[in-house]
Design a binder for these strands. Structure first.
Ligand SMILES: [Mn+2]
Ligand SMILES: [Mn+2]
Ligand SMILES: [Mn+2]
Ligand SMILES: [Mn+2]
Lengths: 220, 220
DNA sequence: AATCAAAGTTAAGCATACCTAAATTAATAT
DNA sequence: ATATTAATTTAGGTATGCTTAACTTTGATT
């Protein structure tokens, strides 16, 4: 009924809606999935006739309840695997995503439940994203802000990295920055919107671009 | 270059050779994979032109060195996953095989290495089968015999279960029999070749069929 | 050696998920 | 309103891995 491809589509439609709160176009899907527009247009029809999305030609796609349920389940499997691989097997932050991208499609419910149990029903994945529970309910998590929106002279904790296109994660690994690190905003320069932070005793300057992809919450 | 299907074919060709030491026919593959003869005949051609098997029409298939390398790698991934899932996540003996059958195709080398490391470079999977190392070398393990060939009044240890068609494993779970259990052969009846064994203080009668699918090694 | 059944292969076709190129619709600018 | 451009869909085609039905080869029986 579903398939690897369909699950990836559903997950992406879900993710897009989370970010923009708008229905997603076939072109956006094509870009994200690195396939042709023709491919996504066709898939739109198939998802529609399976009752997983609403879709009208030239308008976008939106998940139905049925589609949302599957998307959330894929998200759950993805995030549990990411956390598991990192915590238990010591894969790096940068590696877990690609691995999870495949594992999410072939894990039995039983296996996922065991992983969930092993990790003691975690709420956040290693990228700081919430993990839906078995019933597709997202846990409440403190709202994070972009580092670029943080205040000078304030302490924060890094809770999330938007790492689509994973150079960023590799860079962060390199400089020793990572999830749950405590940081202090030393300075913000308005001429290029760069941000200087302090963590682990070191100072580090981050470009606007980077600062917009790191998410933080205030800490004591 | 390879694919899930191809990897499954190669693994099966390898397994067949291990058992019978003969080249495998397309019909046998068809039976084992539950696909048509036509499908395996076609795949034989494809594997041949990829240089993974030798194949002459109406004769069987045999792995080339290149094919053997891949087969062993799939076997390695399969067995490491089985052991990992059982030891770490507590999946049952009966469950790990099906899960591993899918995981074996989508795990990066890095991930498999991490699992290997985590398990401290194990030599046997939970079915008592040897795990090839990274270079495709099978470890030396004591040769087991079928329970049906065991001697009355002798102590053995269950080291392996041939569980293609997994009713057997479920049955064993039910009666409390499992890998590494010590058993004692109480009686063998020639009228139906059934075997009566004793383990954990209990006596249990096993049919010829079952006794031919359990493998044991002599123990003190 | 001729016959016949079983084993194995080929032929034709289907589903999935892609592709490129052509056609259509929508949005924007004049 | 019309024309131009950009976004999107459709048409026609490919690769993979299957299917059933028809055909061929093998090898066992007489
Ligand atoms: Mn991820
Ligand atoms: Mn995926
Ligand atoms: Mn197995
Ligand atoms: Mn498999």
């Amino acid at each position: 009924m579903t398939s690897v491809s369909k699950e990836n589509y559903l997950k992406l439609i879900y993710a897009h809606k989370q970010r923009s709160n708008e229905s997603v176009t076939t072109s956006i899907l094509a870009q994200d999935l690195e396939v042709s527009n023709a491919a996504t247009s066709e898939m739109a029809k198939k998802l529609y006739s399976s009752g997983l999305v609403t879709y009208r030609k030239y308008k976008g796609l939106e998940l139905t309840q049925k589609g949302t349920k599957i998307a959330l389940d894929v998200v759950r499997r993805h995030r549990l695997w990411e956390l598991f691989l990192m915590k238990v097997l010591g894969l790096s932050w940068a590696e877990v995503h690609d691995e999870a991208e495949r594992l999410e499609h072939i894990s039995s419910e039983k296996l996922i439940d065991k992983i969930d149990e092993y990790l003691e029903y975690p709420i956040l994945d290693p990228h700081g994203e919430p993990i839906p529970n078995k019933d597709g309910v997202m846990p409440e998590v403190p709202k994070s802000i972009k580092l670029s929106e943080g205040k000078i002279g304030t302490r924060y904790e890094l809770t999330k990295v938007d790492d689509r296109g994973s150079d960023l994660v590799m860079y962060l690994n390199q400089v020793g920055m990572g999830l749950n690190k405590r940081i202090y905003i030393v300075e913000k320069y308005s001429f290029d919107n760069s941000v200087v932070i302090k963590f682990d005793g070191k100072e580090l300057s981050l470009s606007e671009k980077v600062a917009q992809h790191l998410f933080i919450i205030k800490t004591n």
